[in-house]
Design a protein around this nucleic acid. Sequence first.
DNA 1: AACACGCCAACGGTTGACAGTAGATTGTCA
DNA 2: TGACAATCTACTGTCAACCGTTGGCGTGTT
Lengths: 219, 219
Amino acid sequence: MAGLTAPLLGLEKKSLREQALSALRTAITSGELEPGRHLVETELSDMLQISRGTLREALRQLEQEGLLAAGPRGRLSVRHLDAKEIRDIFAVRAALESLAARSLCELPDRAHVTSSLRSAIEAMAAAAEGSLEGRIESDLEFHRTLCRLTGNETLLHSWESLEGSIRMSIMYAGVERAVSNMSVDRHYDIVRAIESGDATLARQTILEHMDGAAANLVA
Amino acid sequence: MAGLTAPLLGLEKKSLREQALSALRTAITSGELEPGRHLVETELSDMLQISRGTLREALRQLEQEGLLAAGPRGRLSVRHLDAKEIRDIFAVRAALESLAARSLCELPDRAHVTSSLRSAIEAMAAAAEGSLEGRIESDLEFHRTLCRLTGNETLLHSWESLEGSIRMSIMYAGVERAVSNMSVDRHYDIVRAIESGDATLARQTILEHMDGAAANLVA
DNA sequence: AACACGCCAACGGTTGACAGTAGATTGTCA
DNA sequence: TGACAATCTACTGTCAACCGTTGGCGTGTT
């Protein structure tokens, strides 16, 4: 039959909790829920049309991702990032991604890796004329891919735990300022460094890339 | 009054959820709940004397910490680590701690930092003749302190998210094997490197320390 | 052996309730 | 009027009981 509903591609049906999670994450990292905003469980469960219990599970996760801050008596509010925190987040991100770059350099067969990365960059190039959101999305996808290709699940997971904070930093610092650092060339530098197999160079390239990004954000 | 129950020192009363979280974490990282063990919500909520809802919140968190693995249909089981995963975990840990070491080197006033670290090492030395658990505990405390002293909350948080996995690695590889790498000298090396202010040296020292630890664990 | 049926375990999710508590509101009195 | 006490309100923490689904398993039938 042709009238299939959804599960064609890897689009597995998500649990309500996961849907709520995505919805809230998006709302926060898009600024729809402003930093500092106080969250009320009943309000949210009502908006999202889910029960309080299910919602609370999602909230716990967002809290651990650093998107929510816990106040006294379990009061939650949208986290507010200052310049130092943004720098701190990017320092950790840099540490993780430089590990990724180093790991990839040590792989015997890097052809597959570099070709995946080049595809990701091409996607960025294709999005270069599109919306700011699209550019950010494709940039993050490149960096996520970098981590994924290492095959180090822990590394990928740590990076993804940070992703929300990264998005918040970008949103907080202003999207225009963020994209200004996402040149296609800079990313090719990274791929070339990995291709060369020089772990030190690859690490250095990533560190500079992240340093530039962070400096740009909090400029 | 002398008959106080608990809240004397910073021991704030924890919510049931937090208590359950600690209890489960301990049970898992101590091996009381063996790797691969299938968890049943009602069973646990029953054992811990808490409601299923409250328990589920704790489980979600453990899942995110990588202590639990999700199977089909939400089935949870205690995660099982193989040698590669242990190496991966320690690679990420090394990346985080080397960032910590580098950051500390850049601090203008390192006297306070190094003295805190030396205290932590003395605690290790004091525990050196004690139980294996005590030695592990003081070793982890040293490394956690390393991260905390940077003042980078994100870094500390990332490290702590990994702590459960680290403990599991140690338990899984055998506690005796783990402590064999925890010499007091090696830790003084780290402090001295930081003291010297040489970021590259400090980073290198940490990387070697972690490399040795990981190699020892999966030997 | 293969299939069908029915039972059961376990999870995802819901509802409704209740206690505790910090803050806001209102009432009271000097 | 201003300060203080009593009260109310808004939330969170936690619980108990329940429904609908799904897949595993044993049993029986052919």
